[in-house]
C-alpha cells in the first residue's frame, strides 16, 4: 500500500508540474473572442470615426494582420495607394472594377479576381489567392464593415477617401467562403513547364521567348554559378542585377516551388552558356 501511495503521489506531482508550468511558465494570452457583428451607429459617425472603425476591424476582427504584416506573407498594404492603380492598369487584370474603390472592394470579397504576382496559392500560377473572402467564411465582415475597411485602406494609402458612409444598414448576407480544395499539386519535371507555370518568360528572355522586365537569362550560366542562381531565385533581392529594380522579381518562389523544382531550374539555367 505504501508503494502504491508513493507511485500515485509521484504521478500526481508530475501532472501538477505540467499544469503548473502551463499556468505559470507560459504567458496566459487571452485569445480573441469569436468575431461578432458590431452594432454600428452609422448615423452619428463622421468620416474620421468611420476610418477609425475600419482601422479597428483591420487590426482586430478582420484578422488582416495575420497575413498583411512585415513578414512578407502578403502584399504590404501601406503601398496600396500606388499599387491599386497599377493593378488596374496591369494586363493581367481581368476583374470588374473600374476604379480604386472598386478594386479594393473586389480584393476583399473576391480575392482571386486579381492575384498580385507571386502571392498566388502554390501551383495556381497566381490565379487563386490564398486570401479568404472577407465577406463570408471565417471573417464574415458585413457590408458597412467592408466599406469602413476600404475607407481605412484608402486613407492609409494616402488616397482620396471615396467611400460613402452607408446610411441604410442592411442585414449582411452570409456568403460562405469557398472550401479550399486542397490537394497539393504534383511537382513539375522540366524547366519549360516551370517557366510556363511561373511566367519567368514574362520578364526574362530565355532562348526564344522574350521578356524584358528582367535580365536576359539566355547565357546566364556563363557568368553566374549555380549557387548564385539558386539565391537569385529564392532571395532575389540579395543581389540585384545591374540596371534593374529591386522587388520586381517575385520573392516568394521559395514558398511556391518544391525543392526538386528549384534544382531543376538551377541545373537548367546554369547550363545556359
Amino acid at each position: 500500500m505504501r508503494q502504491f501511495l508513493t507511485v500515485i503521489s509521484f504521478m500526481l506531482l508530475t501532472i501538477g508540474a505540467f499544469a503548473g508550468f502551463s499556468n505559470l511558465g507560459i504567458p496566459q494570452i487571452e485569445p480573441a473572442p469569436p468575431p461578432v457583428e458590431e452594432v454600428i451607429d452609422l448615423g452619428s459617425m463622421n468620416m474620421e470615426q468611420f476610418i477609425a472603425l475600419g482601422d479597428r476591424i483591420f487590426n482586430g476582427k478582420g484578422t488582416c494582420t495575420l497575413c498583411h504584416n512585415s513578414l512578407g506573407r502578403a502584399p504590404d498594404l501601406g503601398q496600396i495607394g500606388t499599387n491599386a492603380q497599377a493593378r488596374l492598369d496591369d494586363d493581367r487584370y481581368a476583374g470588374d472594377a473600374a476604379d480604386i474603390e472598386g478594386y479594393l472592394s473586389e480584393s476583399l470579397t473576391n480575392p482571386s479576381a486579381y492575384v498580385v504576382v507571386g502571392f498566388g496559392k502554390a501551383g495556381s500560377d497566381d490565379t487563386e489567392s490564398p486570401m479568404p473572402s472577407t465577406s463570408g467564411g471565417s471573417i464574415a465582415l458585413s457590408d458597412p464593415e467592408l466599406a469602413a475597411v476600404i475607407a481605412y485602406l484608402q486613407d492609409k494609402g494616402g488616397l482620396e477617401v471615396t467611400v460613402e458612409i452607408p446610411t441604410d444598414v442592411e442585414v449582411p448576407e452570409e456568403e460562405p467562403a469557398e472550401v479550399a480544395s486542397g490537394e497539393p499539386r504534383a511537382p513539375f519535371t522540366t524547366f519549360q513547364e516551370l517557366a510556363d507555370e511561373f511566367a519567368c518568360e514574362a520578364c526574362h528572355t530565355i532562348g526564344e521567348e522574350a521578356g524584358d522586365l528582367g535580365p536576359n537569362l539566355s547565357a546566364i550560366g556563363a557568368s553566374r554559378d549555380a549557387e548564385y542562381i539558386r539565391r537569385a531565385i529564392l532571395d532575389p533581392n540579395a543581389d540585384i542585377a545591374e540596371g534593374f529594380d529591386e522587388g520586381m522579381m517575385p520573392d516568394d518562389m521559395g514558398e511556391q516551388i518544391y525543392a526538386i523544382e528549384l534544382e531543376i531550374m538551377v541545373d537548367f539555367l546554369s547550363q545556359l552558356k
Binding site: I15, G16, F18, A19, S22, N23, I26, Q28, I29, E30, P31, P33, P34, P132, G137, S138, P176, A177, V179
Partner: peptide, 23 residues
C-alpha cells in the same frame, strides 16, 4: 467555414485553463 459554433463557449480558452482541464 461551414458550421459556426454559436454557443456561449465558442471562444478559445487560455492555455492555462486547457492545461487544467487536461490535468
Amino acid at each position: 467555414d461551414i458550421m459556426r459554433d454559436n454557443s456561449a463557449d465558442a471562444f478559445t480558452p487560455t492555455l492555462g485553463y486547457a492545461a487544467n482541464v487536461v490535468s
